[in-house]
């Protein structure tokens, strides 16, 4: 093959490549201009865990069983609980997650016996210090906690008396399902 033929072939290969770029020049841009366009999050999107608010009971259903604490590979969940007056099950009084350590594996959600854990959908949390990522998951439930405990106590008392299943009976045992 003479030098000239090789030269022409080489140039032609470059022209072909430029043709591809030319074709793409007229395509619609695929870039998402992030702060102006917000991403659409999928239903499965995983962010820091949160407690489910069950409409039936008006609160979460964490029984402080410590299963999520024990399975967490990053050791980033802290749960404490007490036994509310008149109830058989425990109830969480502290539920903290160190999101800076969390690897979003979802094992805690898998093991939760009352299905009260879910992923939240926040994706843009920022902070200047690591301790800003220690989330208190009970914050949204603090205001209603006293009322829930009272309802649960009443429900437990009524459940203890046979054949008097009032409408409040459901409050102590919320419907489980996800």
């Amino acid at each position: 093959m003479s030098v000239l033929v090789r030269l022409l072939r080489g140039i032609w290969s470059l022209m072909l490549g430029l043709g591809v770029t030319l074709k793409n020049l007229f395509r619609r841009p695929v870039t998402q201009t992030y702060p102006h366009q917000k991403p659409e999050l999928s239903a499965a999107f995983r962010s820091a865990i949160a407690l489910v608010n069950f409409p039936a009971s008006g609160s979460h259903d964490c029984v402080a069983c410590m299963q999520c604490v024990n399975i967490c590979p990053s050791f980033c969940i802290k749960v404490e609980g007490d036994k509310p007056e008149g109830l058989k099950r425990k109830r969480a009084t502290v539920f903290e997650v160190d999101y800076a350590l969390c690897s979003l594996c979802g094992l805690c959600i898998d093991v939760c016996p009352t299905n009260t854990l879910k992923y939240s959908k926040t994706y843009d949390d920022v902070g200047y210090r690591r301790d800003q990522f220690v989330y208190d998951l009970l914050t949204p439930f603090r205001a209603g906690e006293a009322a829930w405990r009272e309802r649960a106590r009443v429900a437990a008392v009524e459940a203890a008396q046979p054949a008097s299943a009032g409408p409040a009976a459901a409050a102590g045992e919320p419907e489980v399902g996800r």
Partner: peptide
């Protein structure tokens, strides 16, 4: 993959016996 697994890189999609979603 993000739509199915909820993550884009570190999927943690499998479980012993199957998949999560």
């Amino acid at each position: 993959l993000e739509r199915v697994t909820g993550s884009r890189l570190t999927y943690s999609y499998g479980r012993f016996g199957g998949v999560t979603q």
